[in-house]
Design a protein around this nucleic acid. Structure first.
Lengths: 133, 133
DNA sequence: TATTACATAGTAATTATTATTAACTAGTTA
DNA sequence: TAACTAGTTAATAATAATTACTATGTAATA
């Protein structure tokens, strides 16, 4: 469990609502989720939740840099990490895993070229069947 | 004009069709295109072309490593470059530009970790209004 | 020539996401 | 603590990019 979800929202000075807290609690231990996956997980505890609420909440959380997202395989994937890193999309399993790698070199190179991106998505496409990742 | 479109298809031993050649001719001088953009460009010369043909042809060309694609802003962007590089998505102009940067370091790091990706998409999100890119 | 495989056009279907809107509520202020 | 208000939610409808389907067409092969 990373940091307290309620405190995260307070730090960013946005409203603490049960929906936001619940979404953060699902995501804070890591992993990569589609909007639908979060919705399905959330419904177990919060049956009245709406899919549009999930998406708009995820948008709000990303705008406030509590979450981040990237796109692959025709959909958006959300995760609790917000610093740039490498995600591997497993084409055979249709899931995403994190790779622990320092990419500050890439960010510095971009800065040298006058580009200060709000975010950088790095997605490697790979089969993951034969390996232990 | 990079290399001859017909020759590219022959080299990969896939059928040379007018639709494939026309798509490659649109894309070979660089730039980033959505399926719809290619379709609209193509219709000028080839009014009977179908949007589904455009998508299936783009798929075929990417499978044969003549083109590549990545996803950002809710859609797929196609380009004639196939080696890994950095794309910048201009959030203010809703377009993509290439950044000339060597990313072999990143690919080597991945290889060291046992990952041999079929492709790596690197997309930086940035405003581009205030700069000359 | 007959056969087989692949490609295209046209249309319908899918599906992830966004827009709309009315009701609601967290957090602030009186 | 009550009232206020700006932001949030639920429900539904709408959108838009992409894919599926299918009949026809075209090229390669036996």
């Amino acid at each position: 469990m990373r940091i307290d979800s309620i405190q995260q929202l307070r730090d960013k000075r946005i409203k603490v609502t049960p929906q936001r807290v619940a979404i953060l609690n699902i995501m804070k231990n890591g992993g990569h989720f589609t909007g639908e996956q979060i919705y399905n997980e959330l419904k177990k505890k919060m049956p009245s939740i709406s899919l549009s609420t999930v998406y708009s909440t995820l948008d709000t959380l990303e705008r406030n840099e509590i979450l981040s997202s990237f796109e692959v395989s025709g959909m958006r994937w959300f995760e609790s990490r917000t610093e740039s890193h490498v995600n591997v999309f497993c084409v055979d399993k249709n899931r995403v895993i994190d790779i622990d790698m320092d990419v500050s070199w890439l960010l510095n190179e971009l800065k040298k070229k006058g580009i200060s991106p709000t975010k950088v998505s790095i997605v490697a496409h790979s089969t993951c069947d034969q390996r232990n990742i």
